[in-house]
Design a protein around this nucleic acid. Structure first.
Length: 112
DNA sequence: TGAATGACTCGAT
DNA sequence: GATCGAGCCATTC
């Protein structure tokens, strides 16, 4: 892995950490925010490595554009992702966020 | 070096 | 309106 690609991942992690408490974002939103609109899968790759990243990445706040917890299976405990979201006030049912449109947070619209 | 994979997204049927 | 398939890009085998 080259250093530049590591930097890309680092930006992804940074954006994920910027997600407000009780809000969630999508892979596509992060990818597009970083200028890689068609690299949404790369964001998924980055999150896959987030287990070894410090500080810990709130990966539970990152879901696909449908509001489904597509990455919950990659957690130490799949139930932990849903539990963390519910703990923050996010309503989750069947691995899917109910009020997704209400809790969705776009990094491009954050206050600078 | 070439082929396969993946925590996604969009367009077509 | 829901479902299916193809596209994209970096990493891994």
């Amino acid at each position: 892995m080259s250093k530049e690609s590591d930097d890309f991942y680092n930006r992804v992690f940074d954006v994920v950490r910027l997600v407000p408490h009780g809000r969630v974002t999508t892979y596509g939103a992060i990818a597009r925010f970083l200028g890689a609109a068609r690299s949404s899968r790369l964001v998924g790759w980055a999150m896959n490595r987030s287990h070894n990243i410090i500080p810990i990445i709130p990966a539970h706040r990152v879901v696909n554009r449908a509001g489904i917890l597509s990455g919950k299976a990659h957690f130490n405990d799949p139930n932990e992702m849903q539990r963390l979201l519910e703990l923050e006030g996010v309503v989750v049912k069947d691995d899917q966020i109910i009020n997704f449109d209400d809790v969705f947070w776009d990094p491009a619209s954050m206050d600078l």
